[in-house]
């Protein structure tokens, strides 16, 4: 086993993590609510309609954050996989169990809102386009991870198999990102890139950024809450198991 870097080592202690989560949760949840209220009102009622898409462009303010979160959560799963396989970080497997369903929800919502945009704009709910198909693959990877991590009687085996799946599946993330450049797709190319100026109006970019920050804070709050709950549940299980053993020992004596 390799030595754990300092920062990881500090938060490998569940008690330390619970203290951090307790301090961060109020900020994350209130930030999420504030950004989402402003972003949703701006996106629905204040941002202008697109000259080609009309009001349907407003679906982008929920669709794009879900796509971003689906990819980010999967990257989180892969990082947990590395932490679990290389350093045996005690919280990495618990975090992977809790991130999986949240990421799957984001991927499903990305696909559904994309379909709800596609029907009026393209005239179809679904096409086997490279971007859509690679996002569907990501959703199936999430389902596989959720099933695999709970599939074995011995939890460590399931966690190890799921960590390997998370690492192997990470190849889908660059495929999703670059699919619109590598293939001729019906899905439009990226409007926001790290290197170039955005190709959309600032009146549309602001609500998009605000809803993206809001949903990101919200998902962080949900994951921190679920992980804190999982730590409490695990402690309760350990205490119960110990008290059962003590009772058995005293009966034998």
């Amino acid at each position: 086993m390799r030595p754990t870097p300092n920062l990881l080592h500090r938060y490998a202690n569940p008690g330390q993590f619970l203290r951090l989560a307790h301090a961060l949760l109020p900020w994350l949840s209130s930030g999420a609510i504030l950004f989402l209220v402003v972003g949703v009102i701006w996106g629905l009622f204040i941002a202008p309609a697109d000259w080609q898409q009309g009001d349907t462009v407003r679906i982008m303010y929920v669709h794009v954050p879900m796509a971003w979160l689906a990819s980010s959560c999967y990257l989180g799963l892969a990082i947990c996989g590395v932490l679990s396989l290389v350093w045996r970080h005690p919280l990495a497997d618990l975090a992977a169990i809790e991130i999986g369903p949240v990421g799957a929800c984001a991927a499903a919502l990305c696909l559904i809102t994309g379909s709800l945009w596609g029907e009026p704009m393209w005239g179809t709910w679904w096409v086997w386009d490279a971007r859509l198909t690679s996002m569907l693959v990501l959703f199936f990877l999430y389902l596989g991870h959720i099933a695999l991590i709970r599939a074995f009687d011995e939890p460590a085996r399931g966690q190890r198999a799921a960590a390997i799946l998370a690492l192997a599946g990470v190849i889908d993330l660059p495929i999703i990102k670059f699919s619109v450049q590598w293939w001729n797709t019906l899905h439009q190319p990226d409007s926001i890139t790290l290197t170039g100026a955005p190709t959309m109006s600032m009146m549309m970019l602001w609500p998009l950024l605000i809803t993206t920050i809001g949903f990101t804070l919200g998902v962080a709050a949900v994951i921190f809450t679920r992980l804190s709950a999982a730590i409490h549940e695990s402690r309760a299980r350990q205490l119960l198991a110990r008290s059962r053993l003590d009772r058995r020992d005293s009966q034998v004596a």
């Binding site: 949703v40 629905l44 898409q53 009309g54 009001d55 349907t56 407003r58 679906i59 929920v62 669709h63 879900m66 919502l109 559904i112 809102t113 709800l116 945009w117 029907e119 009026p120």
Partner: peptide, 15 residues
């Protein structure tokens, strides 16, 4: 453009 608000409302409500 035709009225697409049902699609928009469904997207926001679901998300």
């Amino acid at each position: 453009l035709p009225n697409h608000w049902p699609y928009i409302a469904a997207s926001y409500a679901l998300t």
